[in-house]
């Protein structure tokens, strides 16, 4: 029996038909919005590094890290197509919508992963390339394949992948990693849970339908609100920390105190409003502000470094 009949390929026999993918579908596989935050935090790591490399090489390094982040997004969409298909937020992604086959997404993601790591190694150094490879591996294998469907701590541990870009950028310029890079990673790492849980509170039905054990689904919304508040409180000192290790200046100190206080205030509002429209509004306000919070902190760091503003204190690392 032939699989191909009358100049068409039978549906349902596992043989893919001609690709319907447009260029925009491949761009969507790279998760451009996530990529933009990665590019931004990587740029801050590159600029904040004590060693500077040629701007052209810095730009190519940034491109490699962005492509690596996009590749891990494509591999995430390849693996998670079944989950994406049942969630309203993600059902129109290229793979669940049928415009890109899983095999195409896998090949696209793997090619870009290997290419971006090798290119970064050749352009910058192999420490940065190794950190980028670790980031891709952590996001795809540890988070996507293992943690996401297994534990409500998925985005807590998996958040490390999203937190790594400033350290990769720092390493690309300096060839080493320091306390400052680690603090930037810790800041994003601690920011990630309240950011995602605020969204999960609003979209918990979606996650429940997809069988993803997000905290609101497994432990309930009230426990999620308590955890959001605890993480917001822990985030405050980490947000201020760059000012005390020689990374941020006076402007950063002021911004981190003000933004950290607002973040805690929004988390308290989420904790207090537990039902109906006020609860949804409070979670939405925290989610929206969390993006402003992180973006502004890194923007102030970037501007201070570009303007050559003095650090608020001498590096602790100097006398430790």
């Amino acid at each position: 029996m032939s699989l191909i009949d009358e100049n068409r390929i039978d549906a349902g026999v596992g043989l893919p038909g001609p690709s319907l993918a447009g260029v925009e579908d491949y761009v969507a596989l790279l998760k451009p919005r996530v990529m933009s935050l990665v590019v931004f935090t990587t740029l801050v790591g590159l600029v904040a590094s004590p060693t500077q490399i040629h701007p052209v090489l810095a730009a190519v390094s940034l491109l490699c890290i962005a492509i690596g982040a996009g590749a891990s997004g494509a591999l995430n969409m390849w693996w998670d197509a079944d989950i994406d298909a049942v969630m309203t937020r993600t059902k129109n992604r290229p793979v669940p919508a049928g415009r890109v086959t899983p095999g195409e997404a896998l090949a696209f993601g793997m090619t870009l992963s290997v290419g971006s790591v090798l290119m970064l190694g050749l352009v910058a150094n192999w420490l940065a390339a190794s950190l980028l490879a670790f980031t891709i591996f952590f996001y795809v294998v540890v988070y996507t394949m293992w943690l996401k469907r297994w534990t409500p701590q998925n985005i807590v541990i998996g958040g490390l992948a999203g937190a790594m870009p400033p350290m990769v950028g720092w390493a690309a310029a300096a060839g080493s990693v320091g306390l400052e890079a680690a603090v930037m990673v810790a800041l994003i790492f601690m920011w990630t849970p309240p950011h995602f849980w605020a969204l999960a509170l609003i979209k918990s039905d979606d996650y429940a339908r997809a069988g993803v054990p997000m905290l609101p689904v497994v432990a309930g919304p009230d426990e999620t609100r308590r955890q959001i508040l605890l993480y917001a409180l822990a985030l405050f000192p980490l947000g201020v920390a760059p000012a005390f290790i020689g990374l941020g200046g006076v402007a950063y100190l002021v911004a981190s105190v003000v933004l950290g206080a607002i973040f805690v205030e929004r988390a308290v509002a989420v904790y207090r409003h537990r039902a109906g429209a006020p609860a949804r509004k409070a979670a939405g306000r925290l989610f929206g502000f969390s993006l402003i919070h992180l973006t502004t902190l890194f923007l102030v760091l970037l501007v201070e470094k570009l303007l050559g503003a003095p650090a608020f204190t001498a590096p602790i690392a100097g006398w430790m």
Partner: peptide, 22 residues
């Protein structure tokens, strides 16, 4: 003569071309 093999629609041809250019 009937065309042999898989026949692409105009839309599929357009998308294939845009992928090739990209």
């Amino acid at each position: 003569e009937e065309p042999r093999g898989v026949v692409l629609t105009d839309e599929q041809k357009r998308r294939r071309r845009s992928r090739s250019v990209a």
